[in-house]
Simulated assay, not measured.
Amino acid sequence: MKKFVYLICIIVLATLPCAAQKSYIITGHISGLKEGLIVQLVEKSHGNQKPFNAATVRDGKFVFKGSQKDPRGVLLLIKDSYGSYSFILNNSKIVMTGKAVSTKVEGKDSYHFEIFTKGSSLTDQYLKKVSVRNELNQMYDAKSKKYTNVWDRYYSARNKKDTVLLKQIEQSEEYKAANQAEANFFKTVEQKYSQVVRDNKDSWWGPFLMVDLWNYFDESAKPFYNQLSTVAKNSYYGKMVQKELFPTDYTGKQVPQFKLKDNDGKLVSLAELCKGKKYVIFDFWASWCHPCRMEIPNFKKLYTAYADKGLQIISISIDKDESAWKKAVAEEKMAWPSYLDRSEVASLYNVRAIPAIYLIDAQCKLVSDKLRGESLANKLAELFK
């Protein structure tokens, strides 16, 4: 009889549903991390997210504890350093093993992680879904290596303002081939990424992979969003994508106010920078952004033509490396105010792609945020007529 009761107990326990785990524990054993380093978790997005959890390396090990209601794409990184490892966080027991190799990049530690994650089936799925990125990285490296000389010569000539040499380079077959290779590469990227989204359009994976694979969204991303299912659009990442793709239109309205910090630490407001001006252009850019730096000669022409008539230009760099920003400013010799975005102004304006150019009037009302190059020049010619 006792044996019979015992068997019943085993059967009942075996058939009870498993209680869903209500928290996560991440244990990391990563060689190459020095004692006392701060390891951080940051949510993946196109904005500047702040760490939501942190742990200290002790005896070669770190431990994170917390709770996560829904799956989130997360970056594991070292505080004040470059490099990260991507994974999917949910309530589970996760063990990370591997190594981190540190090098110096412009005086700052940069980590390359080789990590194996156990206990996270969602991370396993994620790595399979984004494996196409490895193929594209190899294509990009091959393209860059093949045409590095022509691009080096091109930028050198442009920085020296050697228009004769610049024209010769632009007319060369090598330069034309480099541009065509660039166009072909990005066409391949679009085709590969679009297939990944289509394959995952019916769940939160679809919009999450859009956030993960794209560095920023522009008009070309809207068809991908439109093909998502209702379930996917209503998910956390679906709403994130929707907000980024369809931001608030400030045309004719006052733009959000902000303050920038100059090199002396003094705060300067947008209102102060606009004072006494008829129109103001503020441009979000970065030292590493090729299209941004191609736009600077256009700004110089506009500044020469209209500065005395009431035009102000403000350059706001989103560079993370201050020395790289200072070097680029010195090279470009801008005659107008230039600031490093230390106050997260780009996040305030939901900047996702650069260059991002805003033209406002004396009342800080937006005239347009869709003008560049010739269209911007034509608009200013009309306004200053």
Rank of each mutant, 00 (worst) to 15 (best):
K222Q: 12
Q227P: 14
R153C: 09
I38A: 14
E332C: 03
R133E: 13
T248G: 00
L77A: 04
G119W: 02
F87S: 00
P337R: 01
G265L: 09
V241Q: 02
T56K: 09
T27L: 15
V268R: 15
D202I: 02
Y24C: 05
I318V: 12
Y236K: 01
G73P: 05
T304Y: 06
I357W: 00
A324W: 09
G107P: 08
N137C: 12
D152P: 09
R158A: 03
Y306Q: 05
L77S: 06
E106V: 11
N200H: 02
D109F: 15
D80T: 03
Q49R: 11
S156G: 13
I318G: 15
F282W: 09
N91P: 01
S347V: 14
G28K: 04
G47Y: 10
Y6N: 13
Y250K: 03
K104R: 13
V196W: 04
A324F: 09
Q49F: 06
F284A: 15
A100F: 08
D369R: 15
Y85G: 05
L380Q: 14
P247L: 01
K300S: 10
L13D: 14
L41Y: 04
K146D: 01
K192H: 06
N91F: 05
E331D: 12
E272Q: 08
P51T: 11
I11R: 07
T97I: 02
S287E: 11
D59M: 13
A20V: 11
A330P: 08
E295S: 04
Q171C: 02
T97G: 02
V241C: 00
K192W: 06
I354A: 15
S338Q: 05
K146Q: 00
L359M: 07
K143D: 00
N215W: 11
